[in-house]
Write a protein that binds this DNA or RNA. Structure first.
Lengths: 144, 144
DNA sequence: CTTGACCCTATACCATGGTATAGAGTGTAT
DNA sequence: ATACACTCTATACCATGGTATAGGGTCAAG
């Protein structure tokens, strides 16, 4: 209960480099609950969860800045309606970009599948099938 | 119309930095169709498409190496059965990574949606819903 | 035949996200 | 009390994906 870690223990449990933990602290992503007399950082179980979250979110293509934003999207009981609205807005924005990525990735998947098909039929493709197919997919090409 | 570009024209049309075009060439992602006497690079319309594809793929979280792999997927008429099999294999691998990304992003979308939901209901949540959701390992794609 | 916009190569530099190392203190088991 | 694993800060270093700059050539218009 109320398990505590030293930085090394935390890093090991989460499977990340010890330096990375300190790096995340510098970036404002992961703070120790406190320090010992000696100056040693002390972490709780929540830190472990947070650290795991950071790694997963990173794999999903969020930057550390964005992850910090996500972690800040906490709905605390004391928060005002305004705060809730701001949180909601940030979340919506993130959701929208995620949905765009999903759409584009779905197209890519479709293309790859049809390429596999072509392989099975041994029908030669154009010089760069993925490009041709993406054109037909009508995934937006530019915008900014 | 067999339109041709110089490197600057291509970069402008695609909305990328000129140096970036040369960088992609160094990385083997985008070659000019040829050179003028002067040594000037010459590009065709296909290069523009390719360049746009690269940018999009990048936004989806593919590395330049991965993108090169995607662009290299093709079946040539003269290819042997073996070669075809290799293409198929490469394509399957790409497909798998795309599907992993899709899965992970779908989880994120779910989490973000539920967060928005919680916000709508304004249920004063005790702890960060995102954290909660991610703690459950539901999003994990890794360690395999 | 020079000016300006463009191109060439080569190399330096930048940001992000880490990782490693140096030099010094801590904690504890023998 | 000393060895060993661990921690601290600070700083250097690495890879990726670019971006900028230096020193020079090309080319069309005037």
């Amino acid at each position: 209960m109320n398990e505590q870690f030293t930085i090394g223990g935390l890093a090991r449990k989460a499977g990340v480099n010890l330096q990375t933990v300190r790096y995340y602290e510098r970036r404002g992503l992961l703070l120790p609950v406190g320090r010992k007399e000696s100056g040693y950082r002390v972490y709780g179980l929540d830190a472990l969860k947070r650290l795991k979250f950071i790694r997963r979110a990173k794999e999903l293509g969020f930057t550390l800045e964005e992850i910090r934003g996500l972690l800040d999207l906490r709905i605390e009981p004391a928060q005002s309606k305004d705060a809730c609205e701001r949180v909601k807005e940030k979340t919506s924005i993130k959701l929208k970009t995620v949905e765009e990525k999903l759409k584009a990735l779905t197209s890519v998947r479709k293309v790859l599948k049809s390429l596999l098909d072509a392989c099975d039929r041994r029908s030669p493709t154009e010089s760069c099938p993925i490009l041709k197919a993406m054109e037909k997919e009508g995934v937006k090409e530019d915008e900014g």
